[in-house]
C-alpha cells in the first residue's frame, strides 16, 4: 500500500535523507523513529508530495508521488508536525472545507463530517473557532481532517507530541482502531508508543535507515529489554553494556 524506494533529499550540499526504502501494508502501523533532525519529517513531506524528491520515489496504493502526484495525494491523509490549521475557521466549517478540497462527494460531506467529529471526540467544540482550542483539541482536529476522505494511507507526524497522558491514550486507541483497515506511518519520539501501537518500526539517523524490524526484535537486542538503550546505541556512537546490535 505504501512503498518507498530509495528516497533521497538534498538541501544544497546537505544530504537530509539518503536512500531510505521501506514498505507497509494494509492493517500495519509502521513506526518511524529517530532523533531530532534525523530526516523523519523530511521523508514524510516527500511521501506526501509536499517536498520534491532528489532521488527515488514513493508509491501510495500503486500511484507514484512523483508522476501521479494528485492521484497519490487523494489516497493519503496527513497530519503535519505541530498540526497547523486555519485558525480563523470554525471546527465544522474547517472540516467541510477540507472535505470539499479532498473531493468528497457533496451529499456525503455532512455524514463524513459527523463521523470524524465523533471518531475524534470533537462534539463539544464543533462550533468553536480553531484559534480558541487547546493543543489537544487542535491535534484531534488535525487528525479529523486527515480522516475526512477515508484515505487508505495515513501519515502522522508526531501526532501525540505535546498531549497529556489521557489524550495520548485516546489518540493511540484511535490509531489502533484505524489500523485495522488502513496503512499507517507514524513518526514519534516516544518509545513506549512504538511498543504500544506499532507492528514494525524503522529507525533513521542522519538521513539513513539504521534499523528495521518489530519492536520485539528491537527489545531483544537489550539484555534488560530496554528499547531506549537500543535506540541510543543505534542512533549514537555510544556503547552500552547489555546491548548487542
Amino acid at each position: 500500500m505504501l512503498e518507498v524506494r530509495s528516497i533521497s533529499k538534498k538541501f544544497g550540499d546537505f544530504q537530509a535523507v539518503r536512500d531510505v526504502s521501506f514498505k507497509a501494508d494494509q492493517g500495519e502501523v509502521l513506526g518511524f523513529l529517530g532523533p531530532n533532525g534525523a530526516g523523519k519529517s523530511t521523508t514524510m513531506k516527500m511521501i506526501t508530495g509536499f517536498l520534491d524528491v532528489t532521488g527515488g520515489d514513493a508509491k501510495i496504493c500503486g500511484k507514484s508521488i512523483l508522476n501521479e502526484t494528485l492521484a497519490a495525494q487523494k489516497e493519503l491523509g496527513y497530519v503535519p508536525e505541530n498540526a497547523p490549521l486555519y485558525e480563523d475557521m470554525f471546527v465544522r466549517e474547517f472540516l467541510e472545507f477540507i472535505a470539499n478540497m479532498r473531493n468528497v462527494e457533496q451529499e456525503q460531506i455532512p455524514k463524513r463530517v459527523i463521523e470524524v467529529i465523533n471518531m475524534c471526540a470533537l462534539k463539544d467544540v464543533e462550533f468553536q473557532k480553531l484559534e480558541t482550542l487547546s493543543k489537544g483539541y487542535k491535534r484531534r482536529v488535525s487528525l479529523a481532517q486527515a480522516l475526512i476522505h477515508d484515505p487508505s494511507v495515513l501519515i502522522l507526524d508526531e501526532p501525540t507530541d505535546g498531549l497529556d497522558p489521557n489524550q495520548k491514550h485516546d489518540v493511540r486507541e484511535l490509531i489502533k482502531e484505524l489500523s485495522k483497515e488502513k496503512c499507517i506511518l507514524i513518526s514519534t519520539h516516544i518509545l513506549e508508543e512504538v511498543e504500544e501501537v506499532c507492528d514494525r518500526c524503522i529507525i533513521i539517523g542522519q538521513g539513513e535507515k539504521l534499523f528495521e524490524g518489530t519492536p520485539d526484535e528491537l527489545k531483544a537486542k537489550s539484555d534488560k529489554g530496554r528499547i531506549q538503550d537500543v535506540f541510543r546505541v543505534i542512533t549514537t556512537d555510544c556503547k552500552l553494556q547489555g546491548v548487542n546490535l
Partner: peptide, 8 residues
C-alpha cells in the same frame, strides 16, 4: 503543508 498535500 496542509494545503499543498491535498490534491491541489
Amino acid at each position: 503543508e496542509l494545503l499543498l498535500t491535498m490534491p491541489v
